[in-house]
Write a protein that binds this DNA or RNA. Structure first.
Lengths: 208, 208
DNA sequence: TTCCTTACGCTACGACCCGTAGCGTAACTG
DNA sequence: CAGTTACGCTACGGGTCGTAGCGTAAGGAA
């Protein structure tokens, strides 16, 4: 969460965990009301009932604060077994799309990614707090599909890892692009079309 | 380009087209040096050798200015006939990836998209200036593939349009996500893997 | 040419946010 | 108790924002 590890110093007044929670909650509320660009540290401090200096003691700035405030939203994603690979893909697509409907997520995600193009430490923070944690969904879905016999088990471990990364970028990228760039809704129909394309490919989806 | 149409008023001193070009060029240069978040209107004005008030006479703010400054970069994309659908896809993926390697493009694209989530007019500006213009590549590639016999001609016109939009979101989304979110390189190997996945689908690409 | 209209450069301005310093006080440890 | 760290508060210089006001420049119309 915050920058410094509280266990490093066992003496002195401990940091208020209530303040941590209040700050992150206030950050999400401010994102909803004001959006990324108009969100200010002063506003978050006021909403959280906390002094501005307290924010700077824990986060280097707006970028880091917002990443931590939004990261928890992505942990809500899960992949219940829906019986087939196609159903699992459709399900996660719709779930991810619902997350991107939330104003705090949509305004923050692209903004921090944009900032991360010029800030290595921020990019690593995004990776560890958001991106890498969601790759579990791809791995889980693949294992299930392999167990069902829908996908083969792969021999080369590094090739399998590259493949998982590729699938992750394709699914997440398509949903993000559809939602935020094209600014069109991800509904059940789109999810089905995308799933067909992903499973069958261009020619195969056309034939179906 | 600018906000007001110069042909609307035929009297008075005309706007300097040289200033327009200088401002957009200065904006790109400032994006390279400072990035989106540290770019200021004052800095752009100074670089362009123009008064700050001149900027505000043409653009409502930083968002609109940057969209116009970056839009021209995307028009460089083209789709030469490489002989097969797979080769065409690989080619456009690598071309788009090269564009996203340019610092002015990568820092600006995600930032304006993030802003557009709370600004309808900005979103329309992005669509007309950037997104919609690039869908020509999908349409062109599909026509060629159909002429080669690699894809069927589609009967339903609206279904064909939805399909083109889907493919656009999948290709552009995957490249953007790989480059900016996962922050991994789009090299020839990745482009080939992605192309196989797009053409053959999950099971098909695994078998190949 | 003269008049009209619009664009330009320049200066100045209030408003706002940034990030930090300094201080007294609060909370926890040994 | 003393020692250490966190907190709230105030204040500050520095920077950007977007606009107003002014005199001047560059075109078109009579």
């Amino acid at each position: 969460m915050s920058d410094t590890d509280p266990r490093a110093s066992r003496t002195g007044r401990p940091r208020s965990t209530a303040a941590d929670a209040a700050i992150l909650e206030a950050t999400r509320a401010s994102l909803v009301d004001l959006g990324w660009s108009k969100l200010t540290m002063s506003d978050v401090a006021t909403r959280a009932g906390v002094a501005k200096t307290t924010l700077y003691r824990r986060w280097a700035g707006k970028n880091e604060l917002v990443v931590d405030a939004v990261a928890v939203l992505f942990d809500e994603l899960e992949l219940p077994d829906r019986g087939s690979l196609a159903a699992d893909v459709r399900g996660v697509v719709l779930q991810f799309a619902a997350l991107l409907e939330r104003p705090e997520a949509r305004t923050a995600l692209m903004a921090v990614v944009a900032e991360s193009t010029r800030d290595d430490s921020l990019r690593h923070r995004i990776r560890s707090a958001i991106v890498d944690r969601q790759k579990r969904l791809v791995l889980q879905g693949r294992e299930r599909a392999q167990a069902r016999g829908e996908l083969r088990y792969e021999d080369d471990a590094s090739a399998a890892a590259r493949n998982a990364d590729l699938i992750f970028d394709v699914i997440a990228g398509a949903v993000v692009h559809r939602t935020l760039v094209s600014a069109e809704p991800v509904d059940a129909e789109w999810a089905s079309g995308f799933t067909s394309l992903l499973l069958l490919g261009l020619a195969g989806a056309q034939a179906a």
